[in-house]
Nucleic acid binder design. Structure first.
Length: 434
DNA sequence: CGTCCTCCTCGCCG
DNA sequence: ACGGCGAGGAGGA
């Protein structure tokens, strides 16, 4: 079973479980490629296979570089690894030049103190304090922008399980092979060019992508052919510490005042031009792929919670969730939670849907003989993605809620009590806003 | 700006 | 046993 690759060494970063819990963070619906095999998490990031495991004081990681340097595979250097990175030899990358530690630091946004953020959110929002403080270690990942974009195009009308399958298919069929763990192949995520071919839409339809096949192929074509190189990366938040020292473009823009630096609003609008990207998908990409912590993705599930726990939407007539309303709800949360509102929302919704970690991970290996209700809870955990199946029919909702309540505190009685904060203002704004 | 339909899949219901 | 229905995000009329 030991592959032909060199046997990599485990290394570790000091990190408490309250600052990062990978079991929660890696399967809460923001990333779709991590696979748990034998209690270790594995994923290809930037051309290398990364394995993770965790104990209360450390995050342990292992790096496996591809044995065959992917000569054809396009480089994937979101950061400024220019001439350095093409086909690194195994030996090279395992020694001093290995940038995996900094990659993980960036990927998990470790420059933020989660304790400090939780404290801030709890101080400004009693509802957050009550529901979310027990759910530590939940982080917004700083993922590759292109991958995030495609993954969340796949997320429309979809659930985590199927999104993961679709992303996996994209990697298998279009991404470079990197390594194997316990007989399972790992590929990197394909570059836009690889998904821009003329046969891609048809092929993806055959693979079960449904109408999203068209969106992916079209967006890949736009990004690879109709946008300048590095277009997506230039939308990233230059002030996001997790992104580190930004590429040269940012420096240019800093010196030239006539070019406006990337902003959340600008990035959001730019993403809306792509196929299959609406406000929610755009916000997912802004938050998880571009480093804009203030982006708050709002789906119907979030909207329901917002109405229930934050008394939003009181004066809203329209039954459909318009763009204007979408923006208003986001503004409201940004007002409450501040600069990392999207992160706060993720934590809150993970807390809301409680359950998971132990229960779900213990049962998820075999879904077939698992109580259906538990599976539902598992799928409902997605925070920012996909559908919330539990909210579908009355019956399912009841079942899911029951199961969830079993796991943790139940809290259906007095939500309205504490949600005052800026309720009035909000309802007013919703009414007033055109 | 709101409405309504389509896309597609899945799970629930009858 | 199977067909209808509806939920979910985006797009288009």
């Amino acid at each position: 079973m030991a592959a032909s690759q060199r046997i990599p060494e485990w290394r570790k970063l000091p990190l408490s479980l309250t600052e990062l819990c990978i079991d929660t963070t890696l399967r809460c619906g923001q990333s779709f490629r991590w696979r748990n095999i034998n209690d270790e998490w594995h994923c290809v990031l930037q051309g290398r296979l990364i394995s993770l495991k965790q104990d209360p004081s450390h995050l342990h990681y292992k790096v496996t570089w591809p044995s065959k340097p992917a000569a054809i595979a396009p480089l994937t250097p979101p950061l400024s690894l220019n001439s350095k990175c093409p086909t690194p030899t195994t030996k090279e990358m395992e020694s001093e030049n290995d940038d995996t530690a900094s990659l993980l630091h960036s990927y998990f946004a470790l420059s933020y103190s989660l304790a400090a953020l939780y404290k801030q959110w709890a101080a400004s929002d009693a509802n957050f304090a009550r529901r979310a403080l027990a759910f530590t270690g939940i982080r917004i990942l700083n993922q590759d922008a292109w991958e995030t974009l495609v993954a969340f195009i796949c997320s429309s009308n979809n659930n985590i399980s199927r999104i993961s399958q679709m992303v996996h298919k994209l990697c298998i069929h279009y991404g470079p092979y990197v390594g194997t763990v316990d007989g399972e192949a790992f590929h990197d995520f394909p570059q836009p060019e690889a998904l821009a071919g003329s046969q891609v839409e048809t092929h993806l339809r055959e693979l079960g992508f449904g109408y999203r096949a068209k969106y992916i192929a079209e967006t890949a074509r736009i990004v690879s052919a109709e946008r300048p190189a590095g277009w997506l990366l230039k939308l990233r938040n230059p002030r996001c510490p997790a992104l580190g020292v930004a590429p040269e473009q940012v420096k240019k823009e800093e010196s030239k005042d006539d070019i406006e630096p990337p902003s959340y609003r600008a990035a959001h609008e730019a993403l809306l031009q792509l196929a299959g990207v609406g406000p929610k998908v755009a916000d997912c990409v802004c938050l998880m792929g571009l480093g804009f912590g203030e982006a708050v993705p709002i789906d119907t599930h979030v909207w329901q919670i917002a109405q229930r726990d934050y008394n939003l939407g009181k004066g809203v007539k329209s039954k459909t969730f318009s763009k204007a309303l979408y923006d208003t709800v986001g503004d409201h949360f940004r007002k409450i939670w501040g600069q990392q509102a999207g992160w706060a929302q993720s934590v809150l919704f993970t807390a809301n849907l409680k359950s998971f970690a132990e229960q779900a991970s213990g049962l998820k290996t075999d879904r077939s003989d698992t109580d259906a209700a538990v599976v539902k809870v598992e799928e409902t955990q997605l925070i920012l993605t996909a559908s919330a199946p539990g909210a579908r029919t009355g019956k399912r909702k009841t079942v899911a809620t029951k199961v969830a309540a079993k796991h943790e505190l139940e809290d259906d009685s007095d939500q309205t009590t504490e949600t005052k904060i800026s309720t009035r203002r909000t309802s007013k704004r919703i009414k007033v806003k055109p």
